[in-house]
């Protein structure tokens, strides 16, 4: 990964954290580039939340260092960060509006400015009518959205979201996804953790996959997928026998689906050559598509590899 140090919003350098005998995070190194969406992926218990907690300075690492905006964390930097923790919590008996105003004040946003922002955000997340309601009257999904607002209300340059989509219905997932993409468009840096690979695939620019406290791979989605190119092709053909295909020296494996097959080419085999071979064999090719590995596949493969 080529990076300009000025463009790095978060730099985590060889960070470890232990709880007693248990190592939660081991030698984690990662760099989050400014203005991009960074996905921290991994199975449950991989160390995602612990890593995030260290980035927002809720727990301190045992070793290694973390820099935000090129500095060690301090109270001024804290005001530039918005954080949605995995543990959701709001003051149940406070009204939604009051609650958001309180959280805004904790980030040094006060007065009219705060009120205006609260209204804008409530509107954007379709919660305006709930402003005067007590928090305990809201559904879980709504509370989660309120908490999301409290994380972005002060217009932070860096937004860190721990499992922001878990527990939301598909409509709200879409809504929140758009909001996150808008944050990026506004030049903000977003870090979020998830184990929902489909969402990560759609909105992440860069990812870091961790498993069992350790980084498994990282980089931009494009790079990761490219390095994972398994050289397999979805093929639908008429007029040739499977035997012919399997006999080809270019093919290492064939997997049959209902009306098409997935052909895994041999190492270093050229797909173009395979196509020519197919046509030469007299087959009518109705589908020939390079299969990109999905993040889901990569996740499964990598995680089971290190298991």
């Amino acid at each position: 990964m080529t990076t300009n140090p000025n463009n790095i919003t978060v730099n985590v350098d060889c960070v470890s954290k232990r709880f007693g005998d248990f190592t939660a995070v081991k030698d984690l190194t990662l760099a989050v580039r400014a203005g991009r969406i960074f996905g921290l992926l991994g199975p449950n218990g991989a160390g995602k939340s612990t890593s995030i907690r260290m980035i927002v300075n809720i727990t301190a690492p045992d070793s290694g260092s973390i820099e935000l905006f090129g500095q060690k964390i301090n109270s001024r930097i804290q005001d530039r960060i918005g954080y949605l923790p995995e543990e959701r919590g709001l003051y149940k008996s406070m009204k939604v509006g009051e609650q958001l105003r309180f959280f805004a004040q904790l980030k040094n946003v006060t007065g009219k400015d705060a009120l205006q922002r609260i209204d804008t955000w409530l509107d954007r997340l379709k919660l305006s009518e709930w402003k005067q309601k007590k928090t305990r009257d809201l559904s879980k999904g709504m509370q989660q959205k309120i908490q999301f607002i409290s994380a972005v209300l002060h217009d932070p340059d860096l937004v860190i979201l721990d499992e922001p989509f878990s527990g939301l219905d598909p409509l709200n997932v879409e809504l929140l996804k758009d909001v996150v993409l808008n944050l990026k468009r506004a030049g903000k840096t977003v870090i979020f953790s998830t184990h929902a690979m489909d969402i990560a695939e759609r909105i992440c620019d860069d990812i870091c996959l961790i498993n069992r406290s350790q980084k498994v791979l990282d980089g931009s989605i494009r790079e990761v997928k490219k390095s994972f190119g398994r050289n397999s092709i979805a093929v639908r053909v008429e007029g040739t026998s499977n035997g012919n295909l399997a006999a080809s020296r270019l093919v290492s494996n064939i997997e049959h689906h209902s009306d098409e097959m997935e052909v895994l080419l041999a190492a270093n085999a050229d797909p173009q050559e395979f196509l020519r071979e197919l046509i030469a064999s007299g087959a009518v090719v109705t589908k020939f598509e390079m299969i990109e590995p999905s993040l889901h596949d990569i996740f499964i493969e990598k995680v089971s590899e290190t298991q």
């Binding site: 907690r53 927002v56 300075n57 809720i58 804290q78 005001d79 960060i81 954080y83 949605l84 923790p85 543990e87 959701r88 919590g89 709001l90 003051y91 149940k92 959280f103 904790l106 980030k107 908490q147 409290s150 994380a151």
Partner: peptide, 10 residues
């Protein structure tokens, strides 16, 4: 209520 984590980030 598990609000502490948000508070401590502020």
């Amino acid at each position: 209520t598990r609000i502490a984590e948000v508070l401590f980030s502020s």
